[in-house]
């Protein structure tokens, strides 16, 4: 489902952000991506949905050769991927509801369905009471949950989550983790980047450890 072969990524100056990274993640798997700050977690996720290009190696996602995509067809990859960005990327002038609906509007045109699915996703993350608030009126954790709702609303086969519990206390983190596990049980492949040891501790899922752009263990 997801395969990286000897991927090298240089951001320009200095050491490469990814240095000869090879990985294989199976369909329906739930993996944690961990490692210290600057290890390259975000970089890997960005490469997986074609936000960043890479310099060497090959990347396959659902049989798509990511390196061969261009601006004209990259949306095919992105439509099968739900992304939770490390900085959320919520639109400040849209309400919670509109932010979540937005992810469907760009791909799906059925208004009734959009309303229904948005409502459903907000219920899943427990944000229905805040549906008319704007992102600036929410706590960090609430914003994060909006970002999660937006990523899951299209029920994509792959979820890439970049520190989705970074701003949440332990209790809510556990709840959020449960959300991802539910999505996983419904068939989604989950790549979950985190540096929180609390989340990793139960040891239920495979952990890929990165350090300085290299895979330390997987």
């Amino acid at each position: 489902m997801i395969q990286l072969f000897n991927v090298v990524k240089n951001y320009g100056s200095g050491k490469p952000a990814l240095n000869d990274v090879s990985l294989k993640i199976d369909k329906g798997e739930f993996v944690f991506l961990t490692g210290p700050s600057g290890a390259g977690k975000t970089t890997i996720l960005k490469i997986l949905f074609g936000w960043e290009r890479f310099d060497e190696g090959q990347v396959l996602v659902q049989g798509i050769n990511v390196g061969k995509l261009d601006a004209g067809n990259i949306h095919t990859l992105r439509r099968s991927t739900g992304v939770i960005f490390q900085d959320y990327k919520l639109l400040p002038n849209k309400t919670v509801f509109e932010n979540v609906a937005f992810a469907q509007e760009v791909t799906n045109h059925d208004r009734k369905k959009i309303k229904f699915k948005t409502w459903e996703a907000l219920k899943n993350v427990g944000l229905t009471p805040k549906k008319d608030s704007f992102p600036a009126q929410l706590s960090g954790g609430e914003q994060q949950r909006v970002a999660i709702a937006r990523a899951m609303v299209n029920t994509p086969p792959i979820i890439l989550a970049d520190e989705p519990t970074g701003n949440l206390d332990q209790e809510i983190s556990a709840e959020i983790l449960k959300l991802f596990e539910e999505m996983n049980q419904n068939g989604a492949t989950i790549v979950f980047a985190t540096h929180s040891q609390d989340i990793l501790r139960p040891g239920k899922h495979r952990v890929i450890v990165l350090n300085r752009g290299e895979v330390v263990s997987s």
Binding site: F49, W51, A71, G72, I74, H75, R78, R79, T81, V83, K89, L91, F102, A103, V106, T107, R150
Partner: peptide, 16 residues
Amino acid sequence: QDEIELMLLIGATPRF
């Protein structure tokens, strides 16, 4: 600008 970038990141076609 931000909105457009986000749209593209979550799978909008350039035409859209």
